[in-house]
Design a protein around this nucleic acid. Sequence first.
DNA 1: ACCTGAACACCGTTCAAGT
DNA 2: ACCTGAACACCGTTCAAGT
Lengths: 187, 187
Amino acid sequence: MAASARRGAPLTLEEISTTALRLMDEGGVEGLSMRKLAAELDVNPMSLYHHVENKDALIRLICSTAAQRMQLPPDDGSPWQEQLRALAMAYHRHVGQHPAMWSYLHNHPELIADRELIIWQTLYRVLRLAGVPESELRRTSDVLHAFVTGFVVAETHGHLPDDPEEVKADFDAAVRLMIHGVAGFTR
Amino acid sequence: MAASARRGAPLTLEEISTTALRLMDEGGVEGLSMRKLAAELDVNPMSLYHHVENKDALIRLICSTAAQRMQLPPDDGSPWQEQLRALAMAYHRHVGQHPAMWSYLHNHPELIADRELIIWQTLYRVLRLAGVPESELRRTSDVLHAFVTGFVVAETHGHLPDDPEEVKADFDAAVRLMIHGVAGFTR
DNA sequence: ACCTGAACACCGTTCAAGT
DNA sequence: ACCTGAACACCGTTCAAGT
């Protein structure tokens, strides 16, 4: 056994990653430290190293579990333009919930490179529907993903204090620009 | 007088910001610390606080001087599509030279919000040329800027090791998508 | 197997003291 | 006016020791 001296139960990866993500959500990147996380879990800082190799690995864990759990819209049969907008909105919501995590992810794109992730599967499906040829799927999805990430990160960190109507109009303009871009692409 | 005990001349903001940017370029965000910067300048760490309020102010200084010095293409009379591409390429080059600074900037868009900056002036000019109405300039330029930043940051951090031909094709696709998007916008 | 305390090499920053 | 050293409250991480 050898559970914690202060806690009843032993640590799990599950609660480590959940608590770490919460700390990041609440206090940004600098809100998460190994020592604060340990304090939050009521455990010795060094105990964490038995479950996670180091801080980088911890953040990687947070990102991958959060990315896997993203709630993305299913294929409802609507036109690709609407589905692209719905996907962008789902992205927008997720970044709004975990801005610090997405900032990190934006600077470490390799953590989200796995094409089996639901986010890529969904984007591929929408782009196929739009008529993007198979050979261009990787490239087009990369570009759109970078665009959307750039936009929502800038929006979340930049002008949230603004008039929400303005933010909505900005978001609409971004989506329309992408739709026109993809349409012009396959025409 | 009262210059440094170890150096001949007193510190200047100029050399502080130049050296700090170099440290960031060489070692990423974690390559820049007040103590390393002081060591590099052969000065006591605390001396820096006489020229700069704190580390945040130092990074703000780096970003604003670098942004002011960006070399952007002048109006050469070519079509707006070509000028937009040239602008994106200039951006691309600058981010490639200072990736860590741009990562920071991407997460602190307020540092680049001043519409008098050459980057906004240039973008406004190109968009006017493309026929974007005055009332939509702020919005459209925000969206495009976020897109370009998203793309070049992702590219710089993500798949530079790739085949340079592929990177170039990705960049072309991104520019074409933006051009189609803007064109569809004003049609 | 899992947890712990002490220790090391780093941080940013404050403050009182030097010239 | 500008620089400095000591000190404080933080970091991530290693290591040897506990159960």
